[in-house]
Amino acid sequence: MARAGGITNAVNVGIAVQADWENREFISHISLNIRRLFDFLLHFEATTKSKLASLNEKLDTLERRLELLEVQVGTASDNPSIFT
C-alpha cells in the first residue's frame, strides 16, 4: 500500500510539474506577444509623430502663405490708386 501511494504521489508531482511548465510556457508566450505589442506601439508612435510633424510643417507653410496673401491683398486694398 505504501509503495502504491508513493507511486501515486510521484505521478501527481510529475503531473503538477508538467502543468507548471505548461503554465510557464503559456506565460512566456503571453509575455512575448505583449512585448511584440509594445514594440509595435513604439514603432507606431514614432511613425505617427513623424507624420504629424510633416503635417504640421505643411500646415505652417500654408498658414504663412495665407498670411502673405492677406498682407498683399490688404496692401492692394489700401492703395486702390495703383489700379486706376
Binding site: 505617427t48 507624420k51 504629424l52 503635417l55 505643411k58 500646415l59 500654408l62 502663405r65 495665407l66 496673401l69
Partner: peptide
Amino acid sequence: LLIGDFKVSQTEIQIDCMK
C-alpha cells in the same frame, strides 16, 4: 487620416492659384 490629407493638398492648390 494622416495619409489622406487631401484637404491639405487642395488647400495648397488653392493657395497657389491665389498666388
